[in-house]
Design a protein around this nucleic acid. Structure first.
Length: 158
DNA sequence: TTGCGCAACGTGT
DNA sequence: ACACGTTGCGCAA
């Protein structure tokens, strides 16, 4: 079953099997999708109520899983860099490009907050969906971007 | 199974 | 702004 969630004005398709979320993706409209009460659950979840949603990564590469779990430790309203996540998971920054790849194939956007992963110099970095969505999500979380850069104070200690 | 181009990167110049 | 160091992935030989 595919549901549609309006997450602070951003539309999200939510794929559910056996009451477990197996995939999310940003979408333009909710044609053919069912509305439900996920919206409140999502809002609770992103505010770090881990039990608000049931989800699974399925059978994915263990390195990807580790990157996603680490990314989920970034608190609401904070960011981290590709390099910092690389260091936290693999012990050094050499895998920062791999972290970027991991974000680009993130099966669970919003649940895995890939929008909170930015460049080490504070610039925004990339996004698979329109970059405006990443900016909007950061704006929702009150992360301030000045001259295209995010201040050090917004970087979480991972 | 190599080789090559590419990538949501980082760092120094 | 640019070059270069890195890793992993996809695809053509």
């Amino acid at each position: 079953m595919i549901y549609c969630v309006n997450y602070f004005g951003i539309l999200l398709s939510v794929y559910v099997e056996d009451d477990i979320i197996i995939k999310t993706s940003f979408s333009q409209n909710c044609e053919g999708m069912q509305r439900n009460d996920f919206q409140r659950d999502f809002e609770k979840f992103v505010l770090r109520d881990r039990k608000a949603l049931n989800f699974t990564f399925g059978n994915i590469d263990d390195r990807l899983r580790k990157v996603y779990l680490k990314t989920m430790e970034i608190p609401y309203g904070f960011v981290s860099s590709y390099g910092d996540i690389s260091r936290a998971v693999f012990g050094n920054k050499k895998y920062s490009r791999f972290v970027g790849y991991a974000m680009s194939v993130n099966p669970l956007p919003i649940i895995v907050p890939c929008h909170r992963v930015v460049r080490s110099d504070g610039s925004i970095g990339g996004f698979s969906s329109p970059i405006s969505i990443k900016l909007k999500l950061l704006e929702i979380e009150k992360v301030k971007i000045i001259n295209g850069k995010i201040g050090k104070a917004f970087f979480a200690n991972i």
